[in-house]
């Protein structure tokens, strides 16, 4: 198996927790993993991305080549479009629809959503809203992981287990809340796909 995933968002939105969860699951399944993160200046509200590669074979590059990503998993709508050159022709854009507006020239939301809708394979869900309903608003990143999970070649249970390990130090309540967020994201994405068929 091989999953090349671009995680996208804005500094502070928690894409590294998504990466850590997938990473934990991959290590448990004895898969190879490379995950390039952005630290430093951009974490102050700038655009950030992480290249996450999971494979049953050894992985050469820490960076995903352009045109090779299987998924762009974005916790912010405009950011889901920034890395399109990396997406393969058959890849999926999975994005949150709640914008993170910290710049004065953020484009019109309608045009952003229209552009996302133009992508041949896309899923757009309001992860902030879902997170607020089933967990806390801060779990919207984990909702997005849930939404993308069906395109990642790792069993869903392994992702749940990964979440448990990552959040276990913070107590059962936090673990359960994140697992709820993961499941709700998965369900929302499945519903969208079912409605299209």
């Amino acid at each position: 198996m091989k999953s090349d995933i671009i995680l996208a968002g804005v500094g502070g939105q928690g894409i590294l927790s998504i990466a850590a969860t997938i990473g934990m699951a991959a290590v448990d399944k004895d898969l190879n993993l490379k995950q390039a993160e952005v630290h430093g200046m951009s974490q102050r509200g700038g655009d950030v991305q992480s290249h996450l590669r999971v494979s049953s074979k050894p992985i050469a590059s820490d960076l995903i080549p352009k045109g090779k990503a299987d998924i762009i998993l974005s916790v912010e709508p405009m950011e889901s479009l920034r890395y399109l050159p990396y997406l393969s022709k058959t890849g999926w854009v999975v994005t949150n629809t709640t914008p993170f507006v910290n710049i004065p020239n953020y484009p019109e939301m309608d045009t952003v959503m229209a552009k996302i809708a133009e992508q041949p394979n896309h899923i757009a869900i309001d992860a902030d809203k879902i997170a607020a309903e089933v967990a806390t608003k801060r779990s919207s990143n984990i909702v997005m992981l849930g939404a993308a999970s069906q395109f990642i070649d790792i069993e869903f249970e392994a992702l749940e287990e990964g979440l448990r390990k990552i959040f276990e130090r913070k107590g059962d309540a936090i673990v359960e809340s994140n697992i709820n967020a993961l499941r709700a994201g998965r369900a929302a994405a499945e519903e969208i796909l079912a409605s299209r068929n």
Binding site: V10, G11, M41, S42, Q43, R44, G45, G46, D47, S61, L63, I64, P65, K66, G67, A69, M78, E79, L81, R82, L84, P85, Y86, L87, S88, K89, G91, N102, I103, N105, Y106, P107, E108, T111, V112, K115, Q119
Partner: peptide, 28 residues
């Protein structure tokens, strides 16, 4: 990887272009 591909003369197919509506999001 792409820069190295270029230096070897290997073609590669990029995904879609970054749309025009995209704006920069500098750190702040």
């Amino acid at each position: 990887p792409n820069i190295v591909a270029n230096s070897l003369g290997f073609p590669f197919e990029e995904g879609a272009d970054v749309p025009d509506l995209m704006v920069g999001r500098p750190p702040a």
